[in-house]
């Protein structure tokens, strides 16, 4: 019994290890990139909490902290080629979310385009 359990445990550990080895870590277009809020590993894990917190502050209280606003994230992370974080399979948001199979619900309402680019296009 104990042996069975230990085999199972080893198997459980193996599967994720195998998974990460076999499929490549997503390659994404990080746009301009850079570190403005926190280091990348922390951001990978916690960006959604920052965004959710910020969204409630903005919508309900009008406290607009530009540094952690979605717009500001997009400004730097939109691709330098097409000014978007969602336009292609390797776009900044899409690539990771697809890899992790997490539904990306922001951009049904929010624009995924860099604001400066949007302004340039729509001021004509």
């Amino acid at each position: 019994m104990l042996r069975l359990l230990s085999i199972l445990a080893v198997l459980c550990l193996c599967i994720p290890a195998y998974a990460t080895e076999s499929s490549a870590i997503p390659k994404l277009d990080i746009g301009k990139g850079g570190e403005c809020v926190k280091e990348p590993q922390w951001m990978r894990k916690n960006h959604m909490h920052l965004l959710t917190h910020q969204r409630d502050e903005v919508v309900h209280k009008g406290v607009r902290d530009d540094k952690i606003s979605l717009k500001n994230c997009i400004e730097c992370h939109a691709s330098t080629k097409d000014d978007s974080v969602i336009a292609r399979d390797d776009s900044f948001c899409v690539a990771c979310h697809r890899y992790e199979a997490v539904k990306l619900d922001c951009f049904e309402c929010h624009s995924g385009e860099r604001k400066s680019a949007w302004l340039k296009r729509n001021s004509k």
Binding site: G62, R64, K71, I74, E108, C109, H110, S111, E113, K115, W118, N122
Partner: peptide
């Protein structure tokens, strides 16, 4: 209907209700 190309300052999307915001993004 599903929308595209929204103003980055004014998020709007399918399936939700909207109305005059008094241009809250400008007021702020």
């Amino acid at each position: 209907e599903p929308l595209q190309n929204q103003n980055p300052d004014v998020p709007r999307g399918r399936g939700t209700v909207e109305s005059c915001t008094m241009c809250v993004h400008r007021i702020d």
